[in-house]
């Protein structure tokens, strides 16, 4: 039996697995979160039942199958769903990568494919503290609460980052495979950064990135708060009326936060442009 207790965004989680192949995948998935000794609000269990594997939360079956990767993928999806539901409305999640920059949180908020994970990876390889590649948790006090799931690649290769460079950067690699709905095998790489932040950081910079093949290596320009706040609601993971989303973001994002739009083709150059912004420039 493998057991892990951790906390994300004020929600305590425990995970038990008595299925060894599942444990092999779940362990790196859960490794980066801060440990917890509190009574769990969410108790996930993975166990063999007859010829199948059962995934449950708080005693309710979520998934049954025969493939360890499928169970692990199901666990990951349900973990995020349950966590986001349990931490709202005190904590809201923005679809964004989050890293530490000069003691503050720097967010890359964008749709999938816009390059936020590449920018987060470039920052981590440059030594930045890691908060999340997907879930920027906005506290009511203007801080970003870490949600350090492993960095994930949906493919074995990344056009910008070679495995050797990732390993040289101190990241640990894990992977798992699972069948998709069409029966094709999907491989997901998990990269575990070496420098993970476990305490909330004040939100300092929000970058709205867009990878574009015809963009320069990196073009970073400041934008007004209103421009950013008209765009950010679409990146919230929660469903709320549009005026409430705007109010929530306006109240949670500190007045001193700086906003930038970034068009880029080179993630490393783009990260350096963000990293080298003069402190307090607006």
């Amino acid at each position: 039996m493998w057991h892990r207790s951790f906390r994300v965004g004020g929600v305590s989680v425990s995970v038990d697995s008595s299925h060894a192949p599942c444990t092999t995948i779940l362990e790196p998935m859960c490794r980066l979160y801060a440990g917890s000794t509190d009574a769990p609000a969410l108790h996930f269990r993975v166990e063999p039942v007859e010829e199948r594997i059962r995934l449950s939360v708080n005693g309710t079956t979520l998934w049954q199958g025969t493939d360890a990767g499928e169970i692990a993928a199901g666990f990951e999806v349900r973990l995020y769903e349950h966590l986001l539901a349990a931490m709202a409305p005190e904590t809201l999640s923005l679809h964004a990568g989050a890293v530490e920059l000069d003691g503050q949180a720097c967010l890359f908020a964008a749709e999938s494919g816009a390059g936020k994970s590449s920018l987060t990876t470039a920052a981590v390889l440059d030594g930045a503290g890691y908060l999340s590649d997907e879930f920027a948790l906005l506290g009511a006090d203007g801080t970003v609460i870490p949600f350090p799931r492993p960095l994930q690649w949906g493919k074995l290769r990344h056009p910008a980052f070679r495995h050797a460079r990732m390993l040289d950067g101190g990241l640990t690699k894990a992977l798992f495979r699972f069948p998709d709905r069409h029966g094709n095998t999907v491989t997901t790489l998990l990269w575990l950064p070496p420098k993970v932040r476990h305490t909330p950081l004040p939100l300092g910079i929000v970058v709205l990135p867009q990878y574009h093949t015809k963009a320069p290596a990196a073009a970073l320009r400041p934008i007004r708060r209103s421009e950013a706040l008209m765009e950010l609601p679409r990146h919230l993971h929660h469903r709320m009326p549009p005026e409430i989303m705007l109010q929530e973001l306006n109240h949670r994002i500190p007045a001193a936060t700086r906003f930038y739009r970034l068009r880029f083709t080179d993630a490393r150059t783009a990260w350096r442009a963000v990293r080298d912004l003069p402190a307090g420039e607006s």
Binding site: R225, S226, L229, M230, L246, N250, P254, A255, A256
Partner: peptide, 11 residues
């Protein structure tokens, strides 16, 4: 309307 914190703007 939502007044932007620290700005003379309303969204």
């Amino acid at each position: 309307g939502e007044e932007m914190d620290g700005m003379d703007e309303v969204v």
